[in-house]
Design a protein around this nucleic acid. Structure first.
Lengths: 144, 144
DNA sequence: TTACGTGCAAACGTTTTGCACAAAC
DNA sequence: GTTTGTGCAAAACGTTTGCACGTAA
């Protein structure tokens, strides 16, 4: 067993989860991928890589992993659920033309609302920027 | 016919849409409501008010209306689609305990990303703040 | 050996579609 | 009279669940 796989094992053990083949494969996927993936995308890629797992097991483990803080869960631009290895708080930059999604770290000013909504206790902020990525600006097509 | 209904008629005509009963009833709903509604909530309320419309017609018209800019479409905290009469750009304040959702107008600083994601052309920003509304802080329950 | 995880198939809730009919223009 | 919208029922979609079996601890 590779040492990379051993690390993933420790991750599962540390979370109090049993070490199983489907879980190791799913964690491996996240370890070697970077991005924000829908369950379907993950399922397709696991299948394509020769390590298919059952769709039920996939959904169950995505939920389990995100509940244990091993991966992040986010709601995409169109309401799709996506999973992510980036556990740091970060904002997203979505290209309106090609859909490319980049993580960015914004230094946010104090966003505590004044005026209309005083008295709220703000715990988290979710910021998504939409626009055109450099490549799509380059392509210089009419705006979508 | 009431003058309020005439106004709604003009709205439809101006958008190049035919004036029909279901459409007028749907627009009436939005005219007298304030908030962010799921299709199901809208359907329930129309039915309860004695003016039911078909679920297919509802979905078709919600899409049509939002494409024509008559109502706003947003993705809720859990990925649900919601419709809204507030067409102004605004941010949301979501209570993590009771789910209450308030619109707020933030004076956003320049959020153009630097560093990791230079070169993007930012067209829109979506900001959602999560926290506790004043009432839920008052209730002083353990945090969710 | 016992609790937990897997994976199939079925069920689920939401949204979309095909289509015959009705209404608006 | 032509085009557009309605509404039913059926299909499609993504996700969850029940359950018998397998496997980790």
């Amino acid at each position: 067993m590779s040492s990379a796989t051993q690390q993933l094992q420790h991750l599962l053990e540390h979370a109090g989860l049993r070490v199983t083949q489907p879980r190791l494969r799913l964690l491996e996927f996240f370890a070697r991928s970077s991005g924000h993936f829908t369950p379907e995308e993950i399922w397709d890629r696991l299948r394509a890589s020769g390590h298919p797992i059952s769709i039920a097991t996939l959904y169950q483990n995505l939920k389990t992993f995100s509940e244990h803080g091993l991966i992040g869960e986010m709601i995409g631009q169109n309401g799709e659920v996506r999973y992510d290895t980036n556990l740091e708080p970060h904002a997203h930059l979505v290209c309106l033309r090609c859909g490319r999604l980049a993580d960015i770290t914004l230094e946010l000013p104090d966003l505590r609302p004044r005026g209309q909504a005083q008295g709220w206790l703000v715990a988290q902020t979710r910021v998504d920027l939409q626009g055109l990525c450099p490549e799509c600006q380059e392509a210089d097509l009419p705006a979508p």
